[in-house]
Design a protein around this nucleic acid. Structure first.
Length: 181
DNA sequence: CGTGTTTGACCTGCGC
DNA sequence: GCGCAGGTCAAACACG
């Protein structure tokens, strides 16, 4: 099915807030995300692949070594030891929002929350509750700008969206195309 | 009763 | 080797 690793373009100077949207071009406006993320999202600040995420003051640096499209065995093997730099697709984006929970149409179960260094706000860990789906996400508020929520998705959903929200997948699909140059 | 959250303990990787 | 920080587990709890 949809096993495409979706890579967002590294936004050059994205982490400065003056520039608002990284995707300000014609294809995908911030409003689109606003809509798809539900009534909660106030504005779309930016998004980035894992490289750039580090520049956010992201916890970065953890060598993710899971297989690309979620073969369980590979993941375990990788986790065990000695795997190479195989990484699972991971992408983060920022939204301006008052609340942390962005409703993207999937069902998430919270499995942890941790205080993060250099950040007044805790980071929350969610897992997709769909059986067999190993997608995880982390939600964190920036201490430097508490209006900004950073959501990091890890993995790719192996099942259709659960709610008929505004078809998150479709949007992601567009982004895929959008970023494919 | 099923589903999701809370929260402290535990595990692991990394830098010193 | 040790300590710290991030990530996960799982039991207890809350809520519909």
């Amino acid at each position: 099915m949809e096993h495409h690793p979706i890579m967002f373009p590294p936004a050059s100077s994205s982490h400065h807030s003056s520039g608002q949207s990284v995707l300000s071009s014609s294809m995908l406006q911030p409003q689109a995300f606003d809509k798809l993320l539900g009534e909660t999202a106030r504005g779309f600040t930016g998004l980035k692949g894992e490289h750039e995420a580090a520049s956010l003051g992201w916890t970065g640096g953890y060598p993710r070594m899971e297989a690309t499209t979620g073969s369980d065995d590979e993941m375990k093997a990788a986790k065990k030891k000695g795997a190479k730099n195989v990484r699972k697709p991971k992408y983060a984006f920022q939204t301006r929002s008052q609340v942390d929970i962005l409703d993207d149409g999937y069902r998430w179960r919270k499995y942890g929350q941790k205080a993060v260094k250099n950040n007044r706000f805790p980071r929350s860990y969610y897992r997709c509750t769909h059986q067999g789906c190993i997608v995880k996400k982390q939600v964190q508020r920036l201490s430097k700008d508490e209006g900004v929520v950073v959501t990091t998705y890890e993995g790719t959903h192996t099942h259709p969206i659960e709610k008929s929200n505004d078809n998150f997948e479709h949007i992601l699909n567009e982004m895929k195309i959008f970023t494919n140059f």
